[in-house]
């Protein structure tokens, strides 16, 4: 429709409304059904003592809380590290540093998180901090890479025009480059977030809790209800987080892009 308007002289045409793609309602619906299904199952199923203890409502909330906290903290750290690092590396002066830093970030994602977790546990300690470190190592790459790609793909002629009207490089970074790179950067952050939801299930191996606890206990004690609940709740959380991230992505994208 926008296209058809722009073929004519659109001097009198009304400004086409910003058509933000509406996020599908399916993922949150599925997530809700999964949670409801699990809760109903726990109510009606014939649970033994171990299962009942692991699947008590309060217990589930605690695991979920731990999981969400791991995801939030590690994603914040990833953003706090990846975005500034990506900006620095995209400055012309930092050109030679790009390949080695990207290689390190690539390696971080290539190494399985479980390896890092166990290594950290053996060398240092267990706990929340160790879990966050291994999540950050794993999820840094998409944020770092998308920040650099987003900045690199800003239309050169826009930067040229900005320089031509007397904007300094700092002003250009903040008023031109970063806003225009926001959509690509947000996409990277969304990927990091989803990776973290999944990988945080391994935090149980460093005693940091999370929904992975249920899965692990289900395996160790050979209790299908616990294992299944852990899996389904993780899936529901992942669907919900991805959906929320999608909504945020469309909301935070600068108008006019």
């Amino acid at each position: 429709m926008t296209r058809a308007l722009s073929l004519r002289d659109n001097a009198t045409a009304p400004a086409p409304a910003e058509a933000a793609p509406r996020s599908s309602f399916v993922p949150p619906l599925v997530a809700g059904l999964l949670v409801a299904g699990v809760l109903v199952y726990i109510q009606v199923a014939d649970l033994d003592a171990i299962e009942a203890r692991s699947l008590a409502f309060g217990e589930l909330l605690v695991r979920l809380g731990e999981h969400v906290r791991l995801v939030i903290v590690s994603t914040l750290v990833v953003v706090a590290l990846g975005v500034p690092l990506g900006i620095l590396l995209s400055r012309p002066a930092a050109g030679p540093l790009q390949p080695p830093v990207l290689a390190v970030a690539n390696a971080g994602q290539a190494i399985p998180s479980i390896g890092i977790l166990v290594l950290l546990a053996l060398l240092y300690d267990v706990g929340f901090a160790m879990a966050v470190i291994s999540l950050v190592v794993y999820a840094l790459l998409p944020v770092l890479r998308n920040t650099m790609v987003g900045l690199r793909h800003v239309d050169r002629s826009i930067i040229d025009a900005a320089r031509g009207m007397g904007m300094g490089s700092r002003r250009i970074l903040f008023t031109v480059e970063l806003p225009l790179a926001v959509p690509v950067m947000l996409a990277g952050i969304r990927v990091a977030l989803i990776l973290n939801v999944g990988v945080a299930t391994l935090a149980t191996y460093t005693d940091a809790g999370g929904l992975g606890d249920l899965i692990e206990r289900g395996i160790v004690f050979y209790r299908m209800p616990i294992l299944l609940s852990g899996c389904l709740l993780t899936i529901a959380l992942a669907l919900l987080v991805d959906w929320l991230a999608g909504v945020a992505e469309t909301r935070l994208r600068p108008r006019g892009l």
Partner: peptide, 18 residues
């Protein structure tokens, strides 16, 4: 400072889209 006092127009226009 010089550029703020010289108008500059290019073929690609280069308006800030946001």
């Amino acid at each position: 400072e010089l550029r703020r006092h010289i108008g500059y127009v290019i073929q690609q226009v280069g308006l800030l889209p946001h």
